[in-house]
Amino acid sequence: DLVFTLKESLKPQTNYIFYCQSCGDIIEKDRNFLRVLPLPSENWSALVEEWCCHPNPFARSPLHPQHHDCFLGDTFFLCLFFNESHVPESPKSKENTRVFCKRCKIMLGETVSSDTVKYYVTEVVIQPSEGSFNPMPRSQFVQSIVAQCLVELSSAKSTFRFTVKGDDGKIYILIWILNSDTLLVESLGNSSSHNVFTRFGDSFMPSSGPVGTWNAVKVLYQPCIKSRNKDLADAWESDIGVHPLVFPSETCLELLLILGLSTTSLPPSLRHMNSFQV
């Protein structure tokens, strides 16, 4: 795998270093967790209300980690603050709850309580302390993380439709998985799409050999920025069969641009299916 998969690789009683994915700055050193636990699905509280014949017993008991705990969500992980320099001084508004990298000022996550932080998996890289940080081009990292989320959730929850929402609560993209085990093969010597992603400063093709092969997730998508496809977005948001994926708003825009560039690399006849882009 191209990226460090938290759910499979984050182990208790092991020292880790948190890095900013964008600039490589160390966020936290020598984090050691005694418990690494998965969180329930995003709409678990609503399901409790449907199944209980009495008031929701968890309504006033949010799931926050204790000391040396790490809770894993679909697109984030929760832990207690370790580096106090990242704690916002006065969390009176949404802007003040955001946590930023001290070096590059990229949003890393947000506070969910006075001592608990939510880090997004698209912004923070976690690696064992004895290892070294190997930077990955930003667009390649975002693609890998989002693809992993889509594959894992579609397999675990048997859902194939997703809304990509920003931390501002807005829906940016509607995604419908077509195929999660696509194998792409392309001749590198005569590739018209080889430089499609140069705006991000990286290439997704293998660097050697006459033929490049790599795994991919094939999706249909609809942009929802500037009120585009609002009716469809509203319908998907209220559909219990659609799973939400929440990322920082800036990352949602990055993902939308990546999808658009990927679409333009296809032959014109293969870029659309019904009203969706491929």
Rank of each mutant, 00 (worst) to 15 (best):
D1E: 14
K7V: 06
S9I: 00
F18G: 01
C20K: 01
C20A: 09
Q21H: 14
C23W: 03
D30P: 05
V36I: 06
L37V: 07
P38W: 06
L39V: 00
P40F: 03
N43A: 11
W44R: 09
S45R: 11
H54C: 09
H54F: 15
P57Y: 03
A59T: 06
R60K: 15
R60D: 14
R60W: 13
S61E: 08
P62L: 06
L63K: 09
Q66N: 09
Q66P: 00
Q66L: 03
H67T: 13
H68L: 10
C70H: 01
L72T: 01
D74G: 07
F76R: 01
E89I: 07
S90W: 05
K92V: 09
R98V: 08
R103H: 12
I106D: 13
G109T: 00
T111I: 13
T111A: 15
Y119D: 04
T122H: 06
T122Y: 02
E123R: 10
V124G: 01
I126F: 05
I126C: 14
Q127E: 13
S129Y: 04
S129P: 02
S132Q: 15
M136P: 04
M136W: 02
P137Q: 10
Q140Y: 05
Q140R: 12
V142N: 06
Q143V: 03
S144L: 07
I145S: 02
C149T: 04
V151F: 05
S155E: 13
T159D: 03
G166M: 04
I173C: 07
I173G: 00
W176Y: 07
N179E: 12
S193G: 11
H194E: 09
N195A: 03
V196S: 13
F200P: 03
F200L: 10
D202E: 10
D202C: 13
S203P: 04
S207P: 07
S208P: 02
P210T: 09
V211Y: 05
A216P: 04
K218P: 00
L220Q: 07
Q222L: 15
P223V: 11
P223W: 06
R228F: 03
N229M: 09
N229G: 10
N229P: 08
A235R: 11
E237K: 13
E237L: 13
I240H: 12
G241V: 01
H243L: 14
S249Y: 08
E250R: 04
L257P: 00
I258F: 03
L259H: 01
G260S: 13
L266G: 05
P267M: 05
P267I: 06
S269L: 12
R271I: 10
H272V: 07
M273L: 14
M273I: 10
